[in-house]
Amino acid sequence: MSAASSEIDRQAAEWAAKSDHGQVPAADELAFRRWLAADARHKGAFMKALAVQIHLEKMGKAHPELAPAVTARPKSATRFVMIGAIAASLIVAMYAGLFRLSLENHHYSTTLGHMEVVALSDGSAMTLNSGSKAEIQYALLSRDVTLAKGEALFDVAKNKLRPFRVAARNAHVRAVGTSFSVKNVAGSPIEVLVREGVVAIETHDSSGNHTLQAPANRKVIITDNGAVTMTSASTAEVTNALAWREGYIFLSRRTLAEAAAEFSRYSPITITMADPAVSNRVVSGLFKANDPVGFAKATAEAFHLSFDQKGNTVLLSAQRNKADK
């Protein structure tokens, strides 16, 4: 065994000793995920170390006379590696097949203007909004999702032994059985909306790692520098925020510039405004997500604006006085 492999096994043994059947303490989870991502060999080493640990615990239960020797967690990772090495040659092959069968890795994406409901193998469901991309990684003791971009609603099947985790930029959302959405749109902070149950949101800033518990009817905003804000959201507000599942956009006192950015997530047609006096106008209402032209025409009529469309670009501008023409 090379020195590098030996060091990886030592680190894996330390993480296995810290974990509770694969679930590391919340305070260590970000560091653990970074360790896993640092080297492709780390995940396999951790799985093998965890398999040894679980097997030793089962041996202790089956043979009580051996319990003091095999069930107590070693104080030293080096001692754990030595004990594990003796058992590893006998049990790693058996467990390796089990862990391989339990691993899943799938990629899902939606194009502009399309949504998709994905039935996951554990009974959970993921609803992807327009222009979204997600990766699913399921293992025996974990259910991990990476939301690379866009927005998704997660209806999570309960399984305390396999926590469901969603990563989006610098935020990690952990749940057991609940319903929540995560929004990861370029140029905007991460948004987490809890519809049912409770989620733990883990973030990192210059002062370290932080965990926030967010119950149902809460909206959490996480900026790129790690600042977190949690506000209440009524059942009606949660329903309106998820109107995209039915093909609608709900706007509540949003500027025309913000409304235009929202419509651009669903259609190649862009709404532009050259005049700040126009772009700062405030709008509210429920609109078809795939009809930016209809929205722009209705807005032009309501605010007495000029409407001009050339190809996929719509221009809203202040109407000129007759004396200016």
Rank of each mutant, 00 (worst) to 15 (best):
M1W: 12
S6M: 13
D9V: 06
R10N: 13
W15P: 02
S19P: 05
V24F: 05
A27Y: 15
D28A: 15
E29I: 04
L30R: 09
A37P: 11
A37K: 08
R41I: 12
K43H: 02
F46S: 14
L50C: 12
A51T: 07
L56F: 10
L56N: 14
K58F: 11
M59A: 11
K61S: 11
P64H: 08
T71R: 11
A72P: 10
A77N: 15
M82Q: 11
G84P: 07
V92A: 14
A93S: 10
Y95G: 07
A96D: 13
A96I: 05
R100I: 11
R100T: 10
L101K: 11
E104Q: 03
E104G: 09
H106T: 02
H107G: 02
Y108C: 00
L112G: 05
G113P: 07
G113R: 08
H114Q: 15
E116R: 01
V117Y: 03
V118P: 04
L120W: 04
S121F: 08
D122Q: 08
G123T: 10
G123W: 10
A125F: 13
L128W: 01
N129G: 04
S130N: 08
G131H: 09
S132D: 01
K133R: 06
A134S: 03
A134H: 00
Q137A: 04
A139L: 11
R143V: 00
D144L: 00
L153V: 06
V156H: 02
K158R: 06
K158E: 13
N159G: 13
K160E: 12
R165T: 00
N170K: 06
A171R: 10
R174V: 00
V176Y: 03
G177E: 13
F180T: 01
S181L: 03
V182F: 09
K183S: 00
N184P: 01
A186P: 12
V194T: 04
V199A: 00
I201R: 05
T203I: 04
D205L: 11
T211D: 08
L212C: 07
Q213N: 12
A214I: 02
N217K: 06
R218Y: 00
R218D: 02
V220N: 01
I222K: 05
T229Y: 07
M230T: 06
T231F: 00
A233P: 01
S234K: 05
V238F: 02
N240S: 06
G247W: 12
G247Y: 05
G247H: 03
A257L: 13
A260I: 13
S264R: 15
Y266H: 06
S267P: 05
P268Y: 03
P268T: 12
P268D: 00
I271L: 07
T272M: 11
T272D: 06
D275K: 09
P276L: 04
P276T: 04
A277C: 08
A277S: 14
R281K: 04
V282L: 11
V282E: 07
L286Y: 03
F287V: 10
K288S: 08
P292S: 15
T299A: 04
E301M: 13
E301V: 15
E301R: 12
S306R: 09
F307P: 06
F307Y: 14
Q309Y: 05
Q309A: 12
G311T: 05
L316G: 01
Q319L: 05
R320E: 14
R320K: 13
K322S: 10
K322F: 07
K322N: 12
